[in-house]
Structure formats: C-alpha cells, structure tokens
Amino acid sequence: MKAIKTITASVGLLFSTHVFAADVAANFSALFDVAGLVAFVIGFYLVGAGCYSLYTWSKGNQGKSIGSVIQSMLVGTFLTSIAWVYQLMKSSFIGENPEGVTIESGGAFNLALDAAAASASASVHASGFGRFIPDSTIKTILAFVFFVGFCAFISGVYSIKDIGSQQGGQHPLLSPTIKIFGGVLCMNITWFGCFVSALLDIPALCSGG
C-alpha cells in the first residue's frame, strides 16, 4: 500500500511539473508579444517626439542638435520595425537557422517563439543529455532564453539613441553592441552552441552532435 502511494505521488508530481512547464512556456510566448508591443510603443513615441523637436527646432528653439533628433527618430523607426531589424541582423551573420527564432514581417512574435522552441527542443531532446529531460522542460528553458535574448535585443537597439551623448558613457558603442549581438545569439542558441562546439572541438555543446 505504501509503495502504491509513493508511485501515485511520484506520477502526480511528474504530471504537475509537466503541466507547470507547459504553462510557463506559454507565458513566455505571451510575454514575447508584450515585449514586441512595448518596443513598438517606445519607437512610436521616439518618432513622434523627434517630429515635434524638428518642429520646435525650425521655430528657433534649438535645445537639441538636429543630429541627435534624427538619431532618436531613426532608433524609433527601428523599434517600430523590430522584427525586420532582428531578421536583418540574423540573416547578416547567422543565415538560415531553423532552430532559431525567425520573425516574419508583420510581427508574429508569439508564433515565432513557439515554432523556434519546438524546433530547437526536438533537436536538443534527440541528442546528449536532452534525451533524459522532458520535452516541456526543454521548451520552457529555450523559451526563457529566447525571451531574454529578445529583451536584450530591444534594449540594445534603444541604447543606440544615447551614442554620442553624455548618457552613452565612455564606451557608447559597447553596450548596444553587446546587447544586440547577445540578443541575436540567445534567440539562436543552438546555432551558437554548435559554433562554439566547432571552435573548441567539444561535440557535447552542439545539440545535433
């Protein structure tokens, strides 16, 4: 009787963990959409504020330089088109990666994360230690990494507006560059793992190995 109770409790715990992991992965998918919306709103504000600054500048109020205003508007345009900017960055130095986040024009962020997590999870689950980890758990971990990467990418693009200003610090290009490239790599984590694997000759780092 005691053994039956133990087995029942173990199965229940495993099931609840599986359901919890699935719910967390779904929540990250929803947060992906929220992050994309926040980027769009901030970008729209920057473009609008830039247009107003240009108007006041034309009236003789030159509180900001025309260069900084245009730079801010350009960053705002990037944020309103964050899916296109990310896809451009990904295509530039990663290329086609079926296991990474691919955001189609139109900004289907939620579907982009779901598809990427499913594809990468299948690859990880089929090799190495991934065989012993529940598929839902792998998807949750990947969804978290993708989401953190997306937020870092958005933050990096936003930080471009501070280049050349006092807010940019002593190394104004360093922070945006790290965030942008780090974000792209996080959203293509399996590609990055295989890249490091080939570089260091450590097969275990590549999910396909």
Score class of each variant (00 low, 15 high):
residue 164 G to M: 02
residue 155 S to T: 12
residue 59 K to H: 11
residue 166 Q to D: 06
residue 61 N to M: 12
residue 13 L to R: 15
residue 18 H to K: 06
residue 48 G to E: 02
residue 144 F to G: 07
residue 19 V to Q: 04
residue 130 G to L: 11
residue 90 K to L: 06
residue 96 E to L: 08
residue 37 L to A: 03
residue 163 I to F: 09
residue 99 E to M: 08
residue 43 G to W: 13
residue 100 G to I: 13
residue 205 L to P: 06
residue 90 K to V: 14
residue 89 M to I: 06
residue 149 G to D: 03
residue 61 N to V: 09
residue 185 L to D: 01
residue 118 A to L: 10
residue 14 L to R: 12
residue 109 F to C: 04
residue 3 A to T: 13
residue 99 E to L: 03
residue 111 L to T: 13
residue 50 G to Y: 14
residue 106 G to E: 08
residue 68 S to V: 13
residue 20 F to D: 13
residue 113 L to P: 00
residue 168 G to C: 02
residue 156 G to K: 11
residue 170 Q to C: 15
residue 167 Q to D: 10
residue 155 S to Q: 04
residue 31 L to G: 01
residue 182 G to K: 14
residue 109 F to S: 01
residue 125 H to L: 11
residue 206 C to M: 02
residue 117 A to V: 09
residue 64 K to P: 00
residue 197 S to F: 02
residue 28 F to P: 01
residue 188 N to S: 07
residue 110 N to A: 05
residue 192 F to Y: 10
residue 4 I to D: 08
residue 29 S to L: 09
residue 101 V to F: 00
residue 118 A to V: 06
residue 191 W to S: 03
residue 26 A to L: 12
residue 189 I to C: 06
residue 83 A to W: 04
residue 46 L to K: 11
residue 55 Y to W: 09
residue 174 L to F: 05
residue 208 G to D: 15
residue 63 G to W: 15
residue 129 F to A: 02
residue 2 K to D: 05
residue 50 G to K: 11
residue 183 G to Q: 04
residue 12 G to E: 11
residue 131 R to K: 09
residue 36 G to W: 06
residue 68 S to C: 11
residue 44 F to D: 14
residue 174 L to E: 13
residue 16 S to N: 02
residue 207 S to K: 03
residue 104 E to Q: 04
residue 192 F to V: 12
residue 5 K to N: 14
residue 136 S to V: 08
residue 66 I to A: 09
residue 5 K to W: 10
residue 156 G to A: 01
residue 27 N to M: 11
residue 153 F to C: 07
residue 206 C to Y: 03
residue 12 G to K: 13
residue 129 F to H: 03
residue 143 A to W: 01
residue 19 V to W: 01
residue 5 K to S: 13
residue 18 H to A: 07
residue 59 K to G: 01
residue 188 N to H: 07
residue 187 M to V: 04
residue 83 A to E: 04
residue 93 F to G: 05
residue 124 V to T: 01
residue 102 T to S: 11
residue 153 F to L: 08
residue 18 H to R: 10
